[in-house]
Structure formats: structure tokens, C-alpha cells
Design a protein around this nucleic acid. Structure first.
Length: 306
DNA sequence: AAAGCGTGGGT
DNA sequence: TACCCAAGCTT
């Protein structure tokens, strides 16, 4: 859960997951749809699918206990170099080099490493491997991450409070804010689309499930057009043979790699209307617990408020 | 191996 | 406002 996500955002999800699935076996036995619902709103939804797949692998291939070695951990779904090293060091006292975004910042400043990230990662890992305390690898990992999170911050680091200041090359040169050096990234161009909020008189809502891979994979969505730079046109085709009304305003959302602008259409369906192929009706009471990513909650809120 | 993949908070 | 960043992973 903590991959690219703050502790504050994760905390309530983590508590809810542990309360609902206290053991790896419990999570492995749960339908993946329930896991997606419990993850809704947290983002990077492939993590939810990977976590579930990981639980199944641990339960089936490792007797319900995580493998106590780097290679075994690294082979599990959703566990990459960082997470494998973190589990190894913190849970199993293995002297692994734990390198997250915080540690990258601490080490590149400490040694004024100006190779751009992510290319500098192998070098940083090698340096951490020589710096870590083999007697207390878990404490070392958490200490270096917490140092980055609280003292060696991206902007205006508190060098005067830093226990590593006597050893820090960037601080000595006064260039700490120039590290880490990152490769330039390109911003995405605006995409537009249309969404159709189709309700029945009894409050039911027409939805469908997105494909398992790709953007918002496996999550529930409000039916709509593709999201393209050209946009949906003036009268996009709704999924049901009804006259739809365009609601005033738009819904905006920004993903990691592109901004999105949705126009919202609305219609009320007769009670007996069957859901089209690939779609389904959900009762009004199910909307809150459904696996909607934030962008579709915005769409629903926009439609219900208009 | 560069790009795709969410969301919320901070400056 | 418009970025930047967060206990990164997968293809």
C-alpha cells in the first residue's frame, strides 16, 4: 500500500484490510472483486490485484508464510527491488539495501551523486550496501527513510538538525537542493470524453467493469466514450437507446500522465430496461461500496448535484 | 527500458 | 496556478 503513497492516505485502508483479512490466507481466500472494492480511492489499482495474487502465492507455494530470502520475496507479484529489500531487512533481519525515494535523496546529497535518476539507482544501491549496519538492517532502513521524510526533505531540508551533516558533501557545498538530479519527464496532453449517468426510477445506476489491465484496471466505471485528444463530439452515443441530456459544466481529473475533462450526460431509464451487454445495474445503496475510482465518484457527484 | 499507472498534499 | 512528491511495479 505504501508504494508511492503517503502513510496518511494508507492508514485507514491498512486498518480496514487487517480487520477484514487478518491473515494472508484470509486475503487469498477472498474474491478479488472484494479486494478491489476495499482498495477503491487509493489509486494504482494494479497494486490491489498484485497484493491479492501475492497472498495466493504465499498461501499456496509457501505455506502461508513469506519466504525469508531476497530472491523468494522478489519473485512474488507486486514485490520489486524496494519492497523485497524492505521486507527482508525489517521482517527478517537480512542486511539488504533498502532504497526508496527518500533514500535516493539522502544518498545523492550525502555523496553529491549527479547522475540523473533513475539511471543512478544501481550506484545508489551499491553505496547503501556499504553504508548499512549489518547488525541492525531493519533499523538502518527505517532510519534512512525517516531521515529523508523528516529532515532531508525535497525542499528546504533541515540540514542544521541533520545527524549526517558532518559527512554530507552537498550540505558542505550548499547545493543540497540540487539533488537528486532527475531525468526530464514529459507532461501529458489533455484528453476529453463523455460519461453517461443512467439511472432508473428506483435509484439503480448503470455501470460496467473496466478491463483487468491498463488504466483503472478491474475497477467499476460509469459507461462512457473513450478518452481522446479529439474529444467525444457533440452527441456521443449512449449505451442504451434513450434520449440523454447534457448536464452543464464538466468534470475534471488529473492522472499521473494526462489531464482529463469529461462531459456528463444523464437519462432516466424505464424500470424494465435490461442492462446492455457488459453492463449491469447496481442498487442505489451499493453505490458507496462499489469499486469506483475517484474520477467516477466525481462524475456521480456532478450528476446527482445537478 | 521508457512509459503507463491514481490520488492527495505541499509549496 | 502549476508543478513536485510520496515506503514503486510491470511490461
Amino acid at each position: 500500500m505504501l508504494q508511492q503513497t503517503t502513510v496518511k492516505a494508507v492508514a485507514p485502508y491498512f486498518a480496514a484490510f487487517l480487520a477484514r483479512w487478518p491473515t494472508v490466507g484470509d486475503l487469498a481466500a477472498s474474491p478479488v472483486e472484494e479486494v478491489m472494492k476495499a482498495w477503491a480511492g487509493l489509486g494504482y489499482y494494479s497494486r490491489a490485484r498484485n497484493l491479492h495474487a501475492c497472498a495466493i502465492a504465499v498461501a499456496r507455494d509457501h505455506g502461508g508464510r513469506f519466504p525469508a530470502d531476497l530472491a523468494g520475496l522478489r519473485a512474488l507479484p507486486g514485490i520489486g527491488d524496494y519492497t523485497a529489500a524492505a521486507i527482508a531487512a525489517i521482517a527478517f533481519d537480512i542486511p539488504a539495501a533498502v532504497v526508496d525515494g527518500n533514500v535516493e535523496r539522502v544518498v545523492t546529497r550525502l555523496e553529491t551523486i549527479d547522475t540523473p535518476l533513475p539511471g543512478a539507482k544501481p550506484l545508489i544501491r551499491a553505496r547503501v550496501a556499504t553504508l548499512l549496519d549489518p547488525a541492525r538492517p531493519g533499523d538502518f532502513a527505517q532510519a534512512t527513510m525517516d531521515l529523508g521524510a523528516t529532515i532531508c526533505t525535497p525542499k528546504k531540508p533541515a540540514c542544521s538538525l541533520c545527524p549526517l551533516r558532518p559527512f554530507c558533501a552537498a550540505s558542505a557545498a550548499g547545493t543540497q537542493e540540487a539533488f537528486p538530479v532527475k531525468a526530464p519527464k514529459r507532461g501529458g496532453t489533455l484528453r476529453r470524453g463523455a460519461a453517461f449517468v443512467i439511472r432508473r426510477a428506483d435509484g439503480a445506476l448503470l455501470v460496467r467493469t473496466r478491463p483487468p489491465k491498463g488504466l483503472l484496471g478491474g475497477m467499476t466505471e460509469i459507461p462512457g466514450t473513450d478518452w481522446t485528444a479529439e474529444g467525444p463530439g457533440r452527441e456521443p452515443a449512449p449505451p442504451v437507446p434513450l434520449v440523454v441530456t447534457r448536464l452543464p459544466g464538466t468534470v475534471g481529473h488529473v492522472f499521473t500522465h494526462f489531464p482529463l475533462e469529461l462531459t456528463v450526460f444523464h437519462a432516466v431509464a424505464p424500470q424494465g430496461l435490461a442492462a446492455p451487454e457488459g453492463h449491469r445495474w447496481i442498487a442505489e445503496a451499493e453505490i458507496e461500496g462499489e469499486a469506483f475510482p475517484t474520477v467516477f465518484r466525481k462524475v456521480i457527484a456532478h450528476a446527482f448535484a445537478t
